[in-house]
């Protein structure tokens, strides 16, 4: 049966001081903005905590959605202050 290739799963590391590191890219820092952009391009991402090894993808999603939505869709956006920072 023919089928599309599965999208590879990329695991990022959340360091003790809260930074996001891409170990497959030499431990480079990944900003929240870059995480969002990579998510938008369809990349399959997971985040693991450096200390516990536990999955903390949902924590990062919460942070991302909380950062993006009020700026773009909230009252501030309506009054002209949204999405500029």
């Amino acid at each position: 049966m023919t089928r599309e290739d599965p999208r590879p799963l990329r695991v990022l590391l959340r360091s003790r001081d809260g930074r996001l590191l891409d170990l497959e890219d030499g431990g480079r820092d990944v900003t929240l903005e870059e995480f969002r952009a990579r998510l938008q391009t369809g990349e399959r991402l997971r985040v693991r905590h450096e200390t516990t090894g536990g999955d903390c993808t949902l924590d990062l999603l919460l942070q991302l959605v909380a950062t993006c939505l009020p700026k773009e869709g909230g009252l501030l956006g309506l009054l002209g202050d949204g999405g500029t920072r």
């Binding site: 969002r36 998510l39 938008q40 369809g42 399959r44 991402l45 997971r46 993808t57 949902l58 999603l61 991302l64 959605v65 993006c68 939505l69």
Partner: peptide, 9 residues
């Protein structure tokens, strides 16, 4: 949730 967030963004 990742897919829903992707959809949202």
């Amino acid at each position: 949730m990742v897919e829903l967030a992707r959809d949202l963004l």
